[in-house]
């Protein structure tokens, strides 16, 4: 009922934690068996280790939060050496998020991960608004986005998913360009660029000045973008943005997502993914869906 087969990802259910909200699973593995998850989008890998941005990196907002972590990660080699062997013990699908400051960085990370059987598919992070060079440029321009997709596809031995930025005028244009360049699937959306100011100092709360907005506040935007893109492309979509319950998952499926990622709500309720997986069959049944597949794109029928 919950299973869904997607490029590179043979999911037992459509629920996976989103990249950056689950690390490499270690903290959550202390709480529950990660094998119950459909998949895990692991934290962005870059070619060099990255410390990330200065602190504060976090600010609360109405129904959400801003973050400017800055792709902190130990670097792809260390991830291959210590994190992938840890994840190997779990029966779940690994979507490796790939980031970089230049196109060459992405390609190098993919080349190194190609030989890792623990990784089932790639998720190109062309949208992270936190990195001053690279990320934002690639995701906001259809030509640059298509170009990095084509380059990734040329070297990747596993399916390539492209995670799109919502900080664009026309998401459909970018989605079509990326599809045409050979993307096996699309992940949308990443965080929205936002800002908060401290009332005492009149300065930004986040040291990086701006941050990415996530949480329930962005769910209607994510739903709208999945809905629009679903009508324009043929490749499958993984929906992300503000999911807090099984009903939210159903809404994304209706809009056209084939699977979903749960992001910041893992911070609020560390058991949210297992809870959603448990509740999803009941919610599907309640609204007359025989399966996940049966619900995908229902709003377009």
């Amino acid at each position: 009922m919950l299973d869904i087969k997607l490029p590179g990802l043979d999911l037992k259910n459509p629920i996976m934690p989103a990249s950056g909200c689950f690390g490499f699973g270690r903290e959550y593995a202390e709480l529950y068996d990660l094998s119950i998850l459909g998949g895990i989008a692991i934290k962005s890998a870059t070619i060099e280790p990255r410390f990330g941005n200065p602190t504060p990196r976090i600010a609360e907002t109405p129904s959400g939060m801003l973050n400017a972590i800055g792709l902190q990660n130990p670097g792809v080699d260390k991830i291959i050496e210590t994190e992938l062997p840890f994840l190997k013990q779990y029966d779940t699908q690994i979507l490796a998020n790939v980031a970089g400051a230049s196109e060459e960085d992405y390609i190098e990370v993919i080349k190194r991960l190609n030989d890792c059987p623990e990784v089932h598919a790639y998720e190109l992070n062309i949208s992270c608004p936190n990195v001053k060079h690279g990320g934002i440029g690639l995701g906001s321009d259809p030509i640059l986005a298509a170009n990095i997709t084509r380059m990734a596809k040329a070297v990747a031995t596993k399916p390539v998913w492209v995670k799109l930025s919502p900080n664009v005028t026309n998401i459909v244009e970018i989605a079509k360009a990326v599809e045409e360049a050979g993307a096996d699937g699309l992940v949308l959306i990443n965080t929205l660029l936002g800002m908060r100011l401290d009332l005492h100092s009149a300065k930004p709360i986040i040291a990086n000045t701006t941050g990415g907005l996530s949480g329930p506040a962005i769910k209607p935007i994510a739903i709208r973008m999945v809905y629009q893109v679903y009508q324009a492309v043929d490749v499958p979509i993984i929906g992300v943005g503000g999911i807090t319950c099984a009903e939210d998952v159903l809404e994304f499926l209706y809009a056209g997502a084939s699977a979903v990622q749960v992001g910041m709500y893992n911070f609020v309720d560390p058991y949210i993914c297992p809870k959603i997986i448990e509740q999803l069959p009941t919610v599907l049944k309640k609204y007359g869906c025989k399966s996940v597949k049966d619900a995908i794109g229902r709003s377009h029928v």
């Binding site: 909200c21 602190t55 504060p56 990196r57 976090i58 939060m65 972590i69 910041m264 911070f267 560390p270």
Partner: peptide
């Protein structure tokens, strides 16, 4: 003391060097 999102070591919001 630090601003935290998760409090359990995942989000990298409260790091120091």
């Amino acid at each position: 003391e630090a601003r935290m999102a998760c409090g359990i070591g995942t989000c990298m919001g409260c790091v120091c060097k």
